[in-house]
Simulated assay, not measured.
Amino acid sequence: MTLRLQLPTKKYLHLISVYVPTLPSPDEEKAEFYYELNHVINKIPTADKILLLGDFNALVGRDNSAWDRVLGRHGVGNCNANGFDLLTLCAEQGLTTTNTCFRLPEKYKTTWMHPRSKHWHLLDYIIVRRRDLGDVRITRVMRGAQGWTDHRLVRSKLRLHLKIPRRAPHKHPAKIDWEKLIKNQELTAKLDEAFHAGMPESMEDVSLDEGWRLYAKNLRGCASRVIGGPKRKNQDWFDDSDAEIRKLVEEYRRTLLSTDASERRGAHHGLKAKVRGLKNEWWANKALEIQYYADTNQTDRFFESLQTVFGPRYKKTAPI
């Protein structure tokens, strides 16, 4: 299984997940597997990164001098036939087994215990290109992971920067106050008239999809023009004091023409103090009103007042 991830440098990271035939498998089957894996790696551009990982059922040993830059200095055990095939592939493709590059206790390197000898072996590898070995922070075994498999989990930390995918911005359609149609029959008639005027006379030559798009576009356009959007239900403190605030701002703007800096500074501080006083007074009155509803057990008005102050919670709905 292969997966390609884009990097910011116009390159790609290719993840290749494998499961290699076991040691008792026929040689023809193993040769065919490595032939296909070699073919997959050859199709990857040389500038891209490779992350080859999985259960290789191979023992690569610790002969670092014979397999220079393929094996690290911290291998485990001896090499077998499957390990020789894996090391040959890595040498041909310029790959390095990251499991053998970090100095760790063997309990953090071995991944599988032989059921009869009870010896632990390293069978699962994470392999990268030699030049990308600097991207690997550490590769180690996570002990204690319980599951259906008798292999331990191998984790590798990499220093990579993936390119952020560019997604088309999803625009939510503007809300329409459909509740007006319940009480206003004249508005309903206007909407019907505008809708019929915007639709073509004949829909026989129009496909089903195109007809639906025309229908939806015409309906939403007519509703936006005729009905309009809903009014805001929540209250803000400056709405009730808008006239006074505008008057104070106009008086402050007149002082901006003055050449006296102290006068402008005093007017500025005075404006801030008066506006802050209006805000505190509004909140105090609103708090007294809500407290009165709570004391008189007017539960519906209590929660209605809270909702008008803080506003309803946002409900995300997917367009149909």
Rank of each mutant, 00 (worst) to 15 (best):
E263D: 04
G266C: 04
G266V: 05
Q235V: 00
A284Y: 07
A294T: 00
H268D: 02
E244T: 09
E281W: 01
E289N: 10
E250Y: 00
L288P: 02
R232G: 14
F302Y: 10
D300Q: 08
R264M: 03
L271F: 05
A261Y: 00
D260I: 01
K274R: 15
Y293R: 06
G270D: 15
R276N: 12
G277Q: 12
R254Y: 05
R276W: 02
R301M: 14
T299H: 13
P230E: 05
L257M: 09
W282V: 00
W282F: 13
T255D: 06
A243Q: 10
K279C: 07
A284H: 15
F302K: 06
R301I: 07
F302L: 14
D239M: 11
R254E: 12
E289D: 08
K233S: 10
D300R: 12
E244D: 13
K272W: 01
K233Y: 05
A243R: 12
N234R: 11
E281S: 09
E251Q: 14
R232E: 15
R301F: 12
Y252G: 08
I245N: 10
K247S: 14
D260N: 14
H268C: 00
D242Y: 08
G270I: 02
D239G: 06
L257S: 14
D300P: 04
R254V: 04
F238A: 10
D239F: 09
R264V: 02
A294S: 14
R301S: 15
R264G: 06
F302S: 02
K274E: 14
E250C: 04
Q291G: 05
Y252R: 09
K274I: 01
Q291S: 11
D240G: 09
E281L: 08
T296W: 00
L278T: 05
E250T: 01
L278W: 02
R264T: 02
D260S: 13
D260T: 06
F238T: 07
L248Y: 00
K279T: 04
A267E: 09
W237N: 05
W237S: 06
L256N: 04
T259V: 07
L278D: 09
S241E: 13
D295A: 14
E250G: 00
D239S: 11
D236F: 13
I290Y: 11
L288C: 05
R246F: 02
K231M: 12
D260V: 01
I227M: 05
G229I: 07
R246I: 03
L248G: 04
L288K: 01
E244V: 03
N280E: 12
Y252K: 07
Q298A: 12
E263R: 12
G228I: 08
R276Q: 11
Y292E: 14
L257G: 13
P230M: 03
L248E: 05
E281A: 11
A261N: 03
N234V: 01
E263N: 01
Q298W: 05
I290K: 14
L256E: 09
R276Y: 05
K231W: 02
R254T: 09
A267S: 15
E289V: 08
D295R: 15
D240R: 07
F303W: 15
A294Y: 13
G270F: 04
N234M: 13
E281F: 00
K272R: 13
R264I: 01
G228W: 07
L288N: 07
A261V: 00
D242N: 14
